[in-house]
């Protein structure tokens, strides 16, 4: 049964923020290794919102053409992770990860594939770290490169979601020296959210012990 309402307690939110933080730190570290520059991260913003509101938030947030690497995950909790950046940043990112060894033609040729691999590394390290923290394993799909506006990228209704709640995660990253900016976003549906809540409680119990 799908719970009508799943609310995260303050501590659960803290725990989730921390876990995402760890995952994203790891992802940032991966990105740093790939491009050799400092990567700046924002504090993750976590919102539990209705699906319709999420759709609205997304369409509000994203109006320009974007490039995204999308990876779906499944397991005890499932959802979708995206690495998103403006289309204008895409070639710069490819240039950064290929380390200036490729010609302009080669960069263009490899753009799609390079983006997929970059997304793969970043999203995988983030999700895998989170899975490890919660002591569960997740199955990740092959990364997919998408172009379009925000609403299209998220396609919140694709899996037959029925207007329930979704967890919406949002972390900025920027590589200043390279003029690359973007963000990592994650959407989780309701059954996942309920499971996630349980896992978070387990995690909290393990960490906090008698202090909780």
């Amino acid at each position: 049964m799908t719970p009508e309402q799943v609310e995260l307690s303050e501590l659960e939110r803290d725990a989730l923020t921390e876990i995402v933080n760890i995952g994203v730190s790891r992802a940032a570290s991966s990105l740093r290794k790939m491009i050799g520059d400092q990567v700046l991260l924002s504090v993750p913003s976590i919102e539990v919102v209705s699906q319709s509101r999420a759709a609205r938030l997304i369409s509000e947030r994203e109006v320009v053409d974007l490039v995204a690497v999308r990876q779906d995950f499944s397991g005890p909790f499932s959802g979708r992770a995206l690495l998103i950046f403006p289309e204008t940043n895409s070639l710069e990112l490819v240039r950064a990860v290929t380390g200036g060894e490729l010609s302009a033609e080669e960069v263009l040729e490899m753009e799609h594939e390079a983006l997929a691999e970059t997304g793969n590394v970043i999203l995988n390290s983030c999700l895998a770290t989170m899975a490890n923290m919660l002591r569960r394993s997740l199955t990740m799909t092959i990364p997919e490169v998408l172009r379009g506006n925000g609403a299209m990228l998220f396609e919140v209704d694709e899996r037959g979601g029925n207007g329930g709640l979704v967890l919406f995660l949002y972390i900025d990253f920027a590589v200043r020296m390279r003029d690359i900016r973007g963000y990592i976003a994650m959407l989780m549906d309701i059954p996942s959210l309920a499971t996630l809540k349980e896992l978070l409680d387990e995690f909290i119990a393990g960490v906090v012990g008698d202090d909780a």
């Binding site: 921390e18 760890i22 730190s25 906090v208």
Partner: peptide
């Protein structure tokens, strides 16, 4: 402070697991 302790424990757990900041 006991009220703040769980929160800080979680944050430290994150650090011990590889969070950067």
């Amino acid at each position: 402070h006991p009220e703040d302790r769980p929160r800080i424990r979680i944050a430290v757990a994150g650090m011990l697991a590889g969070a950067a900041l």
